[in-house]
Design a protein around this nucleic acid. Structure first.
Lengths: 215, 215
DNA sequence: ACCTGAACACCGTTCAAGT
DNA sequence: ACCTGAACACCGTTCAAGT
């Protein structure tokens, strides 16, 4: 082919994608397939564009994930507290926090890895602080109560996320306990039963909050 | 080169590595660089062997990680409980559990992902069950107390693992709170201070256990 | 301003072939 | 029984070159 012929057939060029479009497509990929399912090449294919275009818009994969996480954190609204007394109101905050966390199963791990947990939970921390103050706690004791509730709720959700996702547990706690000699048989029977996570959350959080607030 | 010449220079062959050697090298790699740092090719290079030999010994990467996790779970000894009353003994169990978990920062996440948490914590669950029974709880209530303590401790460690690892938090809870108007200034000042994780663990676990066991 | 392909240095995995 | 290289289908990223 001569130089002129090459010049007359210009390289085909896809329409420009926006940074927004890249972020949205990436968010959808993560939602559907988890973080490991997000590859720059898949993303480019999805958008009908060369891989390298993605780099122009978002820098690189790490920066992309950073941005996704950042947006999720900003999207979290302050949770409303409901109930007559501080204990009830803190418990409703805790339940709301758990609900929100469960709605973003893939991103919460990322938030944690990126050290954005404090920013993510500032709104709920503020609300918790108000209730703890209303309950009469002050200073260091109040701060510990606020943090204790936060760590408890976040930790619970992270752990329960696995409990209900991994389909096949080998061996299950149930099997392990039914083969257990000695010990209180009634307790062993209970521990050989699948966990009721909603109930466990309510019981443990209730106990913790009442103890901390002296309800 | 003729056929005969090719036959006279045999392909060099590294001495056989054992499955054990593969597992040990893998464990060291994970320890040093985290799970993402474990690649089949690095592992082979480390052992002075072709990549494909690794596959003969351990199947594939997933199976390798499974095996590592399995071994760590089996390596966990039953924790000793110390203290005069059930509350003190449960708290010493909780502290021991936390200590062990912190010693295996890379593997604990894997254990969780693989749904091995129940197997991993059966020994501590047994010990907790004994103490909870000694405190006078039975049946469903006792089972809930056992599980509440376990979820609390595991969750706390998972969350704190990030808190102290991520070097640069942007923005930090401290910055966020010092820019906060209104609210109890003493409480705000406290929340603007870095967390004392040992103290927070002691306070929250203490409150939870006392509430559950009625100490 | 934004898209392009070529290229580099990585991956995990399978396979047929060696010894 | 166990090691080998070739090959495949993936990665993330950089670069110079287009329009």
């Amino acid at each position: 082919m001569t130089q002129e012929a090459a010049n007359r057939t210009p390289r085909p060029r896809a329409p420009a994608v926006s940074r927004r479009a890249v972020l949205d497509a990436a968010a959808r990929l993560v939602e559907e397939q988890g973080v490991a399912g997000l590859s720059m090449r898949k993303l480019a294919a999805e958008l009908g564009v060369a891989v390298t275009s993605i780099y122009w818009h978002v820098g690189n994969r790490e920066a992309l994930l950073d941005e996704l996480v950042q947006e999720m954190v900003h999207g979290l609204d302050t949770l409303p507290a409901a109930g007559a007394d501080p204990v009830a109101r803190v418990l409703s905050l805790a339940a709301g926090l758990r609900r929100v966390l469960r709605e973003h199963p893939h991103l919460i791990g990322l938030v944690n890895e990126r050290g954005l947990t404090p920013a993510m939970f500032l709104p709920s921390q503020r609300a918790l602080a108000a209730e703890v103050s209303a309950a009469g706690l002050t200073g260091a004791q109040a701060a510990e109560a606020v943090r204790a509730v936060q760590y408890h709720v976040i930790g619970f959700v992270v752990v329960e996320r696995r409990t209900d996702r991994s389909p096949e547990q080998r061996p299950s706690a149930e099997e392990l306990w039914s083969a257990e000699p000695g010990a209180d048989p009634a307790l062993a029977r209970e521990l050989a039963t699948p966990v009721d996570l909603d109930r466990l959350f309510a019981v443990s959080t209730g106990a913790l909050v009442r103890a901390l607030l002296g309800g």
